[in-house]
Design a protein around this nucleic acid. Sequence first.
DNA 1: GAATGCATTTTATGCTCATAATATGTGATC
DNA 2: GATCACATATTATGAGCATAAAATGCATTC
Lengths: 294, 294
Amino acid sequence: MARNSLSPQISANIVEFVKANNMRKGQHLPLQMLADTFRVSRAPVLSALQSLEALGVVRAEANRGYFLEIDGDALDAAKRGADRESDGDEALYFRIAEDRLAGKLPERMSENELMRLYDVPRTRLLKILHRIADEGWIERLPGNGWCFRQTLTSRQSYEDGYVFRAVIEQQAMLLPTFEPDPEGFRRAREVQAALRDGGYESWSRAEIFKANNDFHEMLVACSRNEFFLDSVKRINRLRRLIEYQITIDRSRLPKQTAEHLHILDLLEAGRRTEAAAFLYTHIMGAGRIKVPQI
Amino acid sequence: MARNSLSPQISANIVEFVKANNMRKGQHLPLQMLADTFRVSRAPVLSALQSLEALGVVRAEANRGYFLEIDGDALDAAKRGADRESDGDEALYFRIAEDRLAGKLPERMSENELMRLYDVPRTRLLKILHRIADEGWIERLPGNGWCFRQTLTSRQSYEDGYVFRAVIEQQAMLLPTFEPDPEGFRRAREVQAALRDGGYESWSRAEIFKANNDFHEMLVACSRNEFFLDSVKRINRLRRLIEYQITIDRSRLPKQTAEHLHILDLLEAGRRTEAAAFLYTHIMGAGRIKVPQI
DNA sequence: GAATGCATTTTATGCTCATAATATGTGATC
DNA sequence: GATCACATATTATGAGCATAAAATGCATTC
């Protein structure tokens, strides 16, 4: 009847924010600041804080606002709880992706067929279809209906994607505007070290995938060219869907993180050309693409 | 009240199709073939042909279908007529782009505000906003409303775009999967030669721009990697908006077409590395970007 | 037998209204 | 002086219905 509320999403954002900023018990969480951070009004932030209060994460004080009740690094339980209930659109999106990858959907479908199949109102469906179109694996036909493209399902596209990433990321690093971001590097080192020291066995598939993507996007962000960064982000969203279907080969992770750290080492030593070349073979290797000798 | 018909658009497509295939007076235009070509049903093709009949472009014969009444290369008048009345969405899209570039729109706007301002129903507005979001110059806010990004308006983005194109196109040409497409080359030569031999003075801005884009997209298509091609197409759609605001410097066109032909020459002589290097400086020169000496 | 012409079904858009969520203005409180 | 609490205004979604356009099935014609 009405739209689904933002506040579960905001709750998750707040928890993430608290962790990322290493906040401690007792610290104040001003409404307006959080609203500005997440680019929403104070209203959904308020209702998010109210539900976090019910979980015991924050405490309300009359006329003074909300205060952290738990140290930031002890929030994992709350985080998982918040993650689970967030965003019904995301769920539908994944259902469609899964059905498509499993070959359960015909190539062409009308909006009405999709609405009936997934039992969602048109508006919600359209929002998701447009997002999928943006990712490039469906397109609107000129008359009625939509048509799935081969992007997700063909082996060729999979390999083309790795080649594209390898080229883009290497070239981004070679741009004259490229400049390492010390803070980004520091955080990346932390995450990669944690992954190396045991994380590769205990983290969830999604967490590992996110850590990997964050690393690569951080690197490309250093190029200070939004087109390079947008390209990488776009293709990574696609990758997420495909890789989710594949079981992660965890035995390859230690080598991967070692290579990530090596790239940071090279860059900090000012050996940028070497770093770029290494990054290229790193990505091609991850996609198991043969590098031709020219 | 109802949706706006496809048939004006289809009419334009038919005219274009006839010209591209060099069809002559008297040739048959089968419904199903045209429908398949444009990925629609026979219904809108039929109504398009009926309006073309009213213009005298085709002639209907009872139970036999429609036949060309004019040679393909004499269709310019009909083409211009068809172009003009096609697609109201496109018009709105350009109005928004223009207003945005002129600084007439605030950074954040709600859907309702936009509906009131342009006096269009929500569905039509949303379709266009999603298209704009896909092009990257607006984004949906988490709560209400949309937010324009700086992509269109900043000098920095403009230059970044040229750098991106130069890198992508050069690298696409260097891929092991790259392979010249003889038919594409032949057509490109025709167009570029026509542009050189007078076209640069008489063609409209849109025609010149399209010829230029087609050339570059044809080259990247030869890489046989859809991600490279999609990237170039995406950025070219953006470029169209910006360049439309700028008066074309027609004096630079002869040099440009000469360079295009030179690239084809190099490729046909098998000198791919040289062609790629030349293409890179060609693009950077068009954006007047200084190439750093490393 | 391929393509048309016509009839029928299906689809997407636009409109109105109800409603929950988001956004925002203003006085109260620390 | 910043932040909150509350009241109010605005916004976007969903549902139902009417309608023009698009899709499709089938007899007819060449």
